[in-house]
Amino acid sequence: MTVELLDRKLLFVTGKGGVGKTTIAASLALLAAQQGRRTLVGEVDAKGNLADFFEVGPTAFKEREVSRNLWAMSMSTEDSLKEYLSLQLKIPLVARLGPLARTFDFVANAAPGVKEILTIGKFVWEVREHHYDLVVVDASATGHIIGQLAAPQSIQELVQVGLVRDQTDWMLDILGDPTRTGAVIVAAPEEMPVNETLELVTRLRDETVVDLAAVVANRVLPELFTRREEKIFERLPAAALAQAIGGPVQPLLDGAQLAVTLRRTRGVHLARLRRELPPEVPLLYVPYLFQRSHGARATHQVAEHLQEELT
């Protein structure tokens, strides 16, 4: 690794839906904050999930401190537009805009890339202004992330003059600087998430200026047995054991068999992920957590695992 992951200033955490993107984003942010960095974590698809990972009330566009050194927010393109207008135009326009919602609809729908640039721009701006040591973005899923990260280029192609056009240069500077900005792709060790991860690696390189900082293999199941132990497992006498215990044993053996098989099928995909990723890209492993819930407890545990992987 040329730059330590958490020493970058801006991390976009993406991945196929359902792989635990928000968990990883929350945990990376928590880890950075624990290490003493002023950290902002922002959720792009405002489903209100992020708050659950810190056990705090709903997050809003205005960031809130959720623990020491750690602030959380959720993206609202409408609020981002308001903030942008009041910062850039330096006139108290917001009050006069009145039905902003409608006008916003126009801007967002009619002008492609505007919604995307308002989303990305807010985070890049936080970096430019040095408000935080690290900004972690719980970004969009694989299907949408390219459109967002490539928005500055799209705007440049389409818009020749105007304020928005003027903003794209410094955004591209920060986005394209691998010492400052990186993407983190989260993958589950299953076939489709691995496929999408590998596709995204190529598209990031070809269609955006953002450097791939790391790939996280999430929910990696534990290896139960060595080869020798597995041979023993296969030959365990269920009936004799049930008698010795005085209770059901077959469900236990079935359960272990499922665990072994799942681990094995997933191992194939995990191996393929490592093999087909560019060798310089770090692959971080986070184990499957056998847990009651996905709250603050899980966020802390994942942060611990990430710390081990990063040292």
Binding site: R228, L236, A240, G255, A259
Partner: peptide, 25 residues
């Protein structure tokens, strides 16, 4: 592990496998 025939494996290894099965479950 005593309930498992010696032909399956050494008692230490069998015990380890059993623990693993229980814990995983």
């Amino acid at each position: 592990a005593g309930a498992v025939p010696a032909s399956v494996g050494s008692p230490e290894l069998v015990a380890r496998v059993l623990r693993e099965v229980g814990e995983s479950f």
